[in-house]
């Protein structure tokens, strides 16, 4: 469980540098329980690096990141069973079947076979992969493999989910399907941090952080961001892509 009152995901003035590159540059955010928070921005804006810091895969160069109130990566042992991480790669074992992938990820989280089997049936039903349990992952289509990857993240029923570009490479219909899953998960009380470079997907989030060059250019609900963009540009801005352009452009304008 989260430390009392602590946000599920939080970052304070986080910096991460790789050589001379500042991948994340003084970013702060806090995601509260039950939210679907979208990290939205173009490729290379630092979304993946932030995610990796949040789940303890890489330490920040400066500042601090916390997951359920625990400092990452130092205190990651305290929360390792309470979050699920879906990497950007379709991170499943290609040479295992769907069922075996889920079995393995269930086992390493200490679930027994019976519980894994029940949970597998439930997830495959949800992902439209029922009756496919014995199919090998390398024979799946891209979209199916992506669904399996999501199922592997969900197997141990974690409350906090970090999904790195879960819809990348999917066709629009499948992307919509994925966002339906996310809303189902949110309805079950889970907290989701979802990164995407499809700016339109921001509309499906509860709250959005527009990322640009390692920091948040703007943050708010989709409606708030739209009205802020409208106020700045003096016209209605219904399209998220325009919102991004206006708000990031405004920031650059403000800095000059």
């Amino acid at each position: 469980m989260s430390r009392e009152g602590a946000p599920v995901f939080s970052a304070k003035a986080v910096v991460k540098t790789f050589g001379t590159l500042r991948a994340v540059d003084g970013l702060s955010l806090a995601v509260e329980a039950g939210e679907i928070y979208g990290l939205v921005g173009p490729s290379g804006s630092g979304k993946t690096t932030l995610m990796r810091m949040l789940c303890g895969l890489t330490p920040p160069t400066a500042g601090e990141v916390r997951l359920l109130g625990y400092l990452m990566p130092r205190e990651r042992r305290a929360v390792e069973e309470q979050f699920g991480y879906m990497p950007q790669e379709r991170a499943v074992y290609r040479d295992l079947s769907i069922g075996e992938n889920l079995l393995f990820f269930g086992q390493i989280y200490g679930m027994d076979r019976k519980r894994i089997a029940a949970r597998t049936a439930q997830l495959l039903e949800m992902m439209n992969l029922a009756d496919r349990s014995r199919q090998r992952a390398d024979r799946l289509s891209g979209g199916e493999r992506q669904r399996l990857s999501l199922a592997c993240t969900l197997i141990h029923e974690a409350d906090a989910l970090l999904l790195d570009e879960p819809t990348i490479g999917l066709d629009p219909a499948l992307r919509a399907e994925f966002w339906d899953y996310f809303h189902q998960l949110s309805a079950q009380g889970r907290t989701l941090l979802v990164s995407t470079h499809y700016l339109h997907e921001a509309d499906r989030c509860g709250r959005v952080g527009l990322m640009q060059r390692g920091h948040l250019a703007a943050e708010g609900t989709p409606a708030e961001l739209k009205s802020r963009a409208a106020a700045l540009s003096g016209r209605a801005v219904p399209d998220m892509e325009d919102v991004f352009l206006v708000l990031t452009g405004a920031r650059q304008g403000g800095a000059q």
Binding site: R52, C55, L57, E80, Y85, A91, V92, R94, I108, T153
Partner: peptide, 17 residues
């Protein structure tokens, strides 16, 4: 190496293993 390329290594790494 394949775990690394496929990203499963990261998954295992954030797990209790």
């Amino acid at each position: 190496v394949r775990e690394k390329v496929d990203g499963t290594f990261a998954r295992v790494w954030v797990s209790p293993v």
